[in-house]
């Protein structure tokens, strides 16, 4: 309990508290918790008819999800998402740093620039990427005219329907989620700490690693999670940009629910992803502690 007197604190007023909490809590239970519970129950079920599932309490679906084929896809999803996250960090940190050191008037426009892609539908943005990456796309056309000008032979780069395209798509979509929390952390940092470091004999590079990065660690940790978790469950990027060999776990799950009509197995695979996400979230405090205790 807070030290505030009970009668002045609105959270002490049960009626007001329930009236405010009620609608969002009801919404959450009805549209999030309940469907999720149904899917969780399905993951312990068996198909008994074309549209009928018996909740038999079986672990067979999970056993199948742990088969090398599916574990391999899960591992590959983690790998692709992790690589995309790492690229986001390497690209996003300098961007966040540049924005936080920009003139105050410029800062707001740069931040709007970072968020601009959100104003367009994800599907449209992904199709636009196809136009950029395909064999006759913008990248290859540009490279072809460059090669032409230099008199070099040119064969179009194969990007679309490869893992590279998937990673490009994931980085593109998730970069703002990396930049914004790091920017917030850098913006809070006391600039005189940098001057103090220079004053004490450190160069700019050492100041970066000894002062700036450790102090931005909470923002970096938040950015890593905000990028890794949604990237892991990505569906559109591997579906549209990837080839048959760049399927991620979300694409496999979708097939179980639709073409294979095996809801119990799809549910079990879905929950494998949920459990994995929980595990990553549990790692967060560890990450934060390591960053703070440097």
């Amino acid at each position: 309990m807070s030290a505030a007197p009970r009668e002045t604190s609105w959270s002490g007023q049960k009626g007001a508290f329930l009236a405010l909490l009620g609608p969002p809590l009801g919404w959450f239970l009805l549209f999030f918790a309940a469907p999720l519970a149904v899917v969780w129950a399905y993951s312990f079920g068996t198909n008994v008819g074309a549209a009928e599932i018996a909740i038999s309490g079986t672990f067979a679906n999970y056993a199948r999800a742990l088969e090398p084929l599916y574990l391999g896809i899960l591992a590959k999803s983690v790998g692709i998402a992790a690589l995309a996250t790492l690229i986001c960090l390497l690209l996003g940190f300098p961007v966040a740093l540049a924005i936080s050191f920009a003139a105050p008037q410029a800062r707001i426009w740069l931040l709007i620039g970072i968020m601009l892609p959100f104003w367009t539908n994800l599907l449209i943005r992904t199709y636009a990427l196809i136009a950029v990456l395909r064999d006759e796309g913008l990248v290859n056309t540009a490279l072809a005219s460059l090669a032409d000008a230099l008199g070099l032979p040119f064969a179009p780069l194969r990007m679309i329907n490869t893992n590279v395209a998937v990673i490009v798509g994931l980085v593109y979509v998730h970069l703002p989620f990396m930049v914004l929390p790091i920017y917030a952390a850098l913006d809070r940092m006391d600039r005189t700490l940098i001057e103090a470091s220079l004053d004490l004999g450190a160069g700019h590079l050492r100041t970066m690693f000894a002062i700036v990065i450790p102090l931005a660690a909470p923002g970096i940790a938040a950015g890593l999670l905000l990028t890794l978790v949604p990237a892991l469950g990505s569906y559109l990027a591997p579906d549209l940009l990837g080839g048959p060999n760049s399927q991620m776990i979300a694409n496999v799950i979708e097939r179980q629910f639709k073409r294979a009509n095996d809801w119990p197995f799809g549910a079990a695979l879905s929950f494998m992803l949920v459990y994995l996400t929980f595990l990553i979230l549990a790692l967060r405090p560890l990450l934060a502690r390591k960053g703070a205790g440097a």
Binding site: T192, L193, E195, A196, D199, L200, A202, I211, L215, G293
Partner: peptide
Amino acid sequence: PPNRRPVNMVFQSYAVFPH
């Protein structure tokens, strides 16, 4: 540059490294 001068500063805000 500041890191090559034979001077050191005590800042108004102290600027003690918090980590």
